[in-house]
């Protein structure tokens, strides 16, 4: 599945209101777990995996984008949660981040996971796209940007 097949309007948070890295990760993971009705242990396992990965090296990149991600053994398919914050947040990179793509990978199709991350990276290389994303005001607006 490509990026557009995986993006789900219910998994877009705009605006994100948390201002700390761990809280943002919890918000993003929470949206996914609520949608998939995962239990508390699974929620914690995902949060831990994403935080552990961030602690090795922050996924905050230029243009205010961060792409936290992790491989989750019990997931059957990959998922993406998008969050946009009005206030740039210190996500551990050299500049603050306001656009977040949480990518949760199943272990079943590593090629698909790499393709998803690669599509996000390519998309975010467009200054215009990133500006539009940063200035979006709702989940609907974010969703529409991908399908223009």
């Amino acid at each position: 599945m490509g990026l557009l097949e995986i993006i789900d309007k219910d998994l877009i948070i705009n605006p994100l209101t948390s201002v700390k890295r761990e809280d943002i990760i919890r918000d993003l993971v929470g949206a996914y777990c609520d949608k998939e009705a995962l239990d508390e242990d699974q929620r914690e396992a995902i949060v831990r995996a994403v935080i552990d990965r961030e602690l090795i090296a922050s996924t905050a990149m230029e243009k205010g984008i961060a792409i936290p991600h992790a491989k989750i053994p019990f997931l059957k398919k990959s998922a993406i949660v998008i969050g946009v914050s009005r206030i740039p947040v210190d996500f551990g990179g050299s500049e603050k981040s306001s656009i977040f793509f949480l990518v949760l990978a199943s272990q079943e199709n590593p090629t698909e996971h790499v393709q998803l991350l690669s599509s996000i990276a390519r998309l975010c290389s467009s200054d215009v796209f990133v500006r539009m994303l940063a200035s979006s005001r709702s989940a609907d607006e974010v969703y529409q940007l991908f399908f223009d």
Binding site: E5, Q115, F129, D148
Partner: peptide, 12 residues
Amino acid sequence: NMIRSRREELTS
């Protein structure tokens, strides 16, 4: 993929 976006960056 179905053509769901005109964005060249999303070409598979």
